[in-house]
């Protein structure tokens, strides 16, 4: 208590901080207990940085602040505290990882995402690191999409930046066409990230479906086969989820948690390539299988349009 009175008497700033933010008192006692020789300036700096943290996060923050790397990073950039706060319930190594904090901080700054929403979303994430890895601002996601939208194959591994970029741009296309509720990026992104744990294996859905077909076609020869297609003078790689060479039939498998697949540029490029495969006789039969989702009206129309129509199959 003597040290506390001394600190109050020595530092007018500390006194003001305590008046405006009573949690500074907590910070003082917790930190001096952890680090008895801490100077008033050090405590003041910590209390200032942590002044907006909820009370239940203080213990963890003070413990982490004792780490030299974390201490230096947050003192250089106090905005990292918001990022830290959103993942405070994670492991110490995760929340003290400066790369993670910088990534999240950039995301928060660029999206204006509400910290409490992030905190709540993080608490539910089973794969915490993947949750952080997918915190990519909208502009960056659009750049990622621009990088591959004309360069198939488009079968992106869930849940990766490329997959998120593809799904976001697909959703935006649906919004442009008035086919969905046009969630803003933050709400959509939270919804997407919240589904990370639904897919345990990138190919589980299509593998299960392929096995259920009972085709006389070994998996190594029939799954994920690439066909070169020349569209408008350019060679494209079309990777079919399922391709049965013995019967010249193929299947494209779509599993979108959002429930709808829209006619975005990458999807149109796939349809164009598939119709070329049918037109040239490389395939005699092609189905697009939608598992737990369905094509938007315009996409369905495009798929089923003549010539070279593609069969639409919808599975629950």
């Amino acid at each position: 208590m003597q040290a506390f009175e001394k600190a109050v008497n020595e530092s007018e700033t500390f006194k003001q901080l305590i008046n405006s933010n009573p949690s500074a008192v907590d910070v003082f006692f917790k930190y001096t207990k952890k680090k008895p020789g801490a100077s008033v300036d050090e405590i003041l700096e910590l209390a200032t940085i942590a002044k907006d943290l909820p009370k239940n996060q203080l213990d963890n923050f003070i413990t982490d602040f004792s780490d030299a790397g974390f201490n230096s990073a947050v003192r250089k950039n106090s905005k990292l505290v918001d990022a830290w706060s959103s993942i405070f319930s994670g492991s110490a190594s995760l929340r003290m990882n400066v790369n993670n904090l910088n990534k999240l901080s950039t995301f928060i700054r660029e999206t204006g995402m509400d910290i409490s929403k992030l905190t709540s979303s993080f608490k539910n994430a089973k794969d915490a690191q993947k949750w952080i890895d997918l915190k990519i601002p909208e502009a960056e996601l659009d750049n990622i999409y621009s990088g591959f939208k004309n360069d198939p194959p488009f079968n992106q591994t869930p849940w990766t930046p490329e997959h998120k970029a593809q799904r976001w741009n697909n959703y935006k296309k649906g919004c442009t066409n008035g086919e969905n509720t046009c969630l803003d990026f933050n709400d959509w992104s939270n919804g997407y990230d919240g589904k990370i744990d639904l897919v345990t294996s990138a190919n589980k859905g299509v593998d299960d479906y392929f096995n259920s077909l009972g085709w006389d076609c070994p998996s190594d020869k029939c799954r994920e086969q690439t066909l070169d297609v020349v569209v408008n003078g350019q060679t494209k790689k079309r990777r079919l989820d399922i391709y049965d060479e013995g019967n010249l039939r193929g299947k494209e498998f779509k599993e979108y948690y959002s429930g709808k697949v829209y006619q975005s540029e990458d999807i149109v490029a796939e349809v164009t390539a598939d119709k070329e495969l049918l037109a040239s006789g490389r395939l005699l039969e092609l189905e697009w299988v939608f598992k737990g989702c369905e094509p938007s009206g315009p996409l369905r129309k495009l798929l089923e349009s003549s010539p070279n129509s593609i069969t639409v199959v919808i599975l629950p």
């Binding site: 086969q225 070169d228 790689k237």
Partner: peptide, 8 residues
């Protein structure tokens, strides 16, 4: 084609 084993 001698590079991509998944290419038909």
């Amino acid at each position: 084609e001698l590079e991509d084993k998944k290419n038909v």
